[in-house]
Design a protein around this nucleic acid. Structure first.
Lengths: 169, 169
DNA sequence: TATTGTTATACTCTATAACTATA
DNA sequence: TATAGTTATAGAGTATAACAATA
């Protein structure tokens, strides 16, 4: 695998050092080695892509999109499992699912086996929206991050997933 | 390089599929390929480490720690450059620097060349705190993410930085 | 006229507490 | 007694608008 330097392509006024902030021309030095910091910096890029490709056109916030997708891919799942997967509290899930339900994107069905619980699933339009949004997002990320090869993107995904699996609960 | 599976070590009750959410036992499927989603999931892990190692013991929020570190490594820098580096608005920088200044961690010095601007720098205790916090955080991340080899961590940092450099502005 | 930094304010997102219904 | 889900409320964090001082 080849890890090309991020400024290998077009020439800049002054080539920034490898430990410089992506914007503001500050040096990161120690901070450069902190995973949490690099994650936050990278998130600035990805949320930008999300907003342009999905957030504004489909009027979906990041949480709403993720919830919709997870419900779509796990029909019959419960709110509790969503809360655990996204590490947010139960009351918030309720509110977000409320919004999605009012837009006719998801449904709450009674769980006959356990009357406390409910089974969540997407409606036809919800499923369609989820598929569309994911396509736009995937395409947007590929375009924006074309500096990364397919292999690099694969490895990044893999390592991020590995990191995510190391969480406390 | 060897990319070991995240569940290669201790056996679990049921080995989760590679595209399952780190918690909640839901399948990610399409979502698995979205960088923004994986970034968000990984952030759950890193913010956990930050809170335990730095947040609670040093009473520093993520933004405060990052600001303190950047000011420490870029003495004489301005608020505007910090705002650009962290992609937050100027008013927020003011408030956060206020807090750090009241705690005696940073100082605002007049810029003689441009009287509108100001030069930020850490105090002696601020510099010490920044160094200490970074050490604790680095150590904490190494321990928590020992599932990642040094090489994998290096590659992850590199790829995240590359991603971060692709941002709009 | 543009830029630096500040104040005041509103909005978004998330968390906690208290509650109902069921297991 | 514990769990699933809801409601109401409080708290973080961030953004916008309006302003002063300087370039």
């Amino acid at each position: 695998m080849r890890l090309t330097r991020h400024n290998s392509g077009m020439p800049k006024e002054r080539p920034s050092p490898p430990d410089a902030t992506p914007a503001g021309r500050l040096t990161e030095a120690c901070l450069h080695q902190i995973l949490g910091y690099q994650l936050a910096q990278a998130s600035i890029s990805t949320t930008g892509v999300f907003m342009r490709q999905v957030g504004k056109p489909f009027e979906l916030r990041p949480v709403e999109y993720t919830l919709l997708s997870l419900i779509n891919e796990n029909p019959g799942g419960s709110s509790t499992r969503l809360a655990k997967a996204l590490a947010v509290t139960a009351p918030n899930i309720t509110v977000w699912v409320d919004r999605l339900e009012k837009r006719g994107l998801v449904q709450r069905l009674p769980n006959t086996a356990d009357k406390r619980a409910q089974q969540l699933q997407t409606t036809a339009s919800g499923a369609q929206l989820a598929a569309q949004a994911t396509q736009c997002l995937l395409q947007g990320e590929r375009q924006t991050f074309e500096g990364l090869s397919d292999g690099e993107r694969m490895i990044l995904i893999e390592l991020l997933h590995k990191l995510a699996c190391q969480r406390a609960t």
